[in-house]
Design a protein around this nucleic acid. Structure first.
Lengths: 206, 206
DNA sequence: CGATGTCTTGAACCACCTCAAGCCCGGTGG
DNA sequence: CCACCGGGCTTGAGGTGGTTCAAGACATCG
């Protein structure tokens, strides 16, 4: 699937769920006047669009940020699989529980952290999640397929302010983010700025 | 369980999940310096504390806001039940999917709405969720066991500002909230202020 | 090589925060 | 039944982090 395409939109009734095989997807919600919040970045392996009940409408949409490969699982198939394979059900429940947990973390970031902390947190999160996919890859550099506007939508800030925050982080020689390329110059200070305790940060680095 | 007691805390390894039978519970996370975010209010019927994987640590805590009755389900029991009863697994997955959905809604509220909208949204949500439990009860009044500080923790505001917002809502004769007693004076304007589309609001009123 | 989307920077503004003081309410003990 | 106490509410004044508006520079792609 091409960049920018929606896998599904808010208000649609979902007849299938998606397993993201490659690429990045933004899960987002919209307010009536167009204000937008990105609530999650789905990376390969993610399960997207689990319905809350049969025939219910989605309250959020999903947009491809890169070229994307997904496997589409019709919800009819899903129900039969869940009926027959308790192992899968349990893994699904665990996955959903983890999604809740990270949603709660994002919420406290947006509700209680300063702009600088929020941006640092997000970059750190994306970096560690990305690196977890290619274990052994220890380069402090990666491609993040996001505009500053999308970072703003994820952190609850305006893209103008995101830009200013990134400028100061660059000036402070902590991270360098320019046209989708992220370089972590000083991991320790990034963790410090993000306000993550060393414990958590390290667990992210597993 | 008495008011103020924690069912569990962030950092503990959960060996059981809870089914809330009566009372209100706040799900919250803490930052190191004490900043606090309430990410969810659990009402009777809620499932609380689903672990992300076996032996994982909770990233959030749960505090009783009222006298509370819970049924405790050891996770060993949970796994055997899930293994044997696919029906239960599917209901659990749906419940978790719904929790994700409401978490996403809260996130966009906190990230993209003004203080006035956030407070209006929260009161509306609590009111409709409460009313859903006693169908047929059409009084525009209820007990909300929250201090203004807790409302602030849920909306990402300070209690001082929550107070100011509540004052203007009272002055505008939209809602009256005083010492835990909520009276909805003008439901239509509350929905309007909350910035919820009539569709959604009505679905909440089902 | 122009077009378009993205980034950058400045100046002015305002929504929300901080600090601080006083008040109200409900509970407790004499 | 009253006095007191402590947690919660209310209000003011001043500060600030983040927004808004706007203009120009920079990448990237046809």
């Amino acid at each position: 699937m091409p960049v920018g395409r929606d896998l599904f939109r808010s208000g649609e009734t979902s007849k299938s769920i998606f397993n993201l095989l490659s690429g990045w997807v933004a899960i987002y919600t919209l307010l009536e006047d167009g204000r937008r919040q990105i609530v999650h970045f789905a990376l390969p392996g993610a399960v997207i669009g689990m319905p809350t009940s049969n025939g219910a409408k989605n309250s959020y949409g999903a947009q491809a940020l890169t070229e994307v490969v997904v496997s589409v699982i019709p919800s009819t198939v899903l129900t039969t699989v869940l009926k027959n394979d308790p192992e899968v059900s349990m893994r699904l429940a665990s996955t959903l529980a983890r999604d809740i947990s990270v949603a709660y973390d994002h919420m406290t970031s947006i509700g209680r952290r300063t702009a600088r902390e929020r941006v640092a947190c997000l970059l750190l999160e994306l970096f560690t999640r990305h690196r977890a996919q290619w274990p052994g890859n220890h380069i402090g550099e990666m491609e993040i397929p996001l505009t500053q506007e999308q970072i703003g939508d994820a952190t609850g800030l305006t893209f103008v302010h995101v830009n200013r925050v990134l400028s100061t982080l660059r000036k402070d020689k902590i991270v360098h983010f320019h046209y989708r390329r992220l370089r972590i110059l000083d991991p320790d200070r990034l963790i410090e700025v993000a306000g993550i305790d060393a414990q958590t940060a390290m667990s992210w680095f597993e």
